[in-house]
Design a protein around this nucleic acid. Structure first.
Lengths: 122, 122, 122, 122
DNA sequence: GTGGTCTAGACCACT
DNA sequence: GTGGTCTAGACCACC
């Protein structure tokens, strides 16, 4: 995994894990890699991983069994809300930003259509 | 002006000025407020304002007449490119983010439409 | 039995056993379940149960007949002192905590009365 | 400040700060000592203090101005709720604990009265 | 083995 | 000078 130097590593790792949950690479109840393993795999410090897991636990995305390991929440509701929240954040910062520079809703949609790659018939 | 604590103030001020340029509140050749005035107005440190002007100067958006003041560039081309760049940044981070969590182009457009729909009362 | 993740499991089990002794669910001389059975029943590690029994033995609350099993102490004195100690711990941490945040004795009593009042329907 | 070895230092510092807020040693809008100063004063690591401030910020008790410092929230509501929450936690763990070992409400009140030091006429 | 905490020391961005 | 982050290395409690 490559890191963007301008964003804290632990934030990037958190987002990566959320993406894995969204795309199904991680499922409810899955055991997360141990902090030591993940630290070795990503070549980042153990403390940084600990921070990642702690934040995810606060957000209710993982839970830990003392002395045993860290697990993905069993709540399917929680997992699906991650996707919703993630998409909502992207959407609102896009729309809000475009409006600030004077685009109205119709224009925003048009611009997106024009600029998005790929072929599709609407 | 209210600041988001998680984003550097100078970035937020730069963006605000760019927005003012895009929306026409600021025009080519306009005199910018003095660093001292802007600092007082926004209740931010004088150094922070200095940094804002310096960065804007590097980007070619403003220029300084020594001892006289800071002025918006005369180049209309430059000003219109700000809008393009600004919008492109917003677009690409939106599209890129949505793809990461598994949406294809068609879905991205649909979701935008659905969520912007309710606000078509402008 | 549900466990609070922030408190060591063996502590929670020890407290549960003490409570059973205090409320009479366990009596002097009773045979405790085998470590294996308790481990299966509570779905916790065998080592954790072993630790529970070891600590209880150190406190003089149970004793082990080698190869036969673990038994509750015969000493009624001991058992009644458990209740006293348990209550004293609760009391002192309550009083001490309330004083730290500025309540005097009179206020502590009042607050307890006020807040326990609504539940007098037992 | 002396630390209890069985409780994480950062938790103890957080509680100390909450107590100072409750007792009025710290007031809304007060500037907190810099992380470096507090670290030196308490003879604990800078990272540990950083963690304390971060948790307090998440709880909404302090806020930070980037590059300037950490301040107590301006919200009097928030501050008074800290006291309420703190006292409620103490109360409920006391009452709940006493009930578990078989005391009813009347007995709980009596025991508190008997054991609390000091003279007062109810 | 697991996660949780702490220290020491460093670098960085922001004001 | 301020907070924010990261690394390296250590110790601990728990299972």
């Amino acid at each position: 995994m490559e890191f963007d130097n301008n964003i804290p590593i632990y934030i990037q790792v958190i987002n990566k894990i959320k993406q894995d949950l969204i795309t199904g690479k991680l499922k409810n109840g899955d055991k997360m890699p141990s902090a030591r393993d993940l630290s070795a795999e990503l070549k980042i410090n153990l403390n940084t991983v600990a921070r990642v897991y702690k934040e995810l636990e606060i957000e209710g995305i993982v839970f830990t069994k003392r002395g045993i390991g860290t697990y993905v929440t069993e709540s399917l509701e929680k997992i699906s809300s991650i996707k919703t929240d993630y998409a909502k954040d992207l959407l609102s910062s896009f729309i809000f930003g475009m409006r600030k520079i004077g685009f109205n809703n119709q224009q925003i949609v048009s611009i997106l259509k024009e600029n998005i790659e790929g072929d599709y018939n609407e």
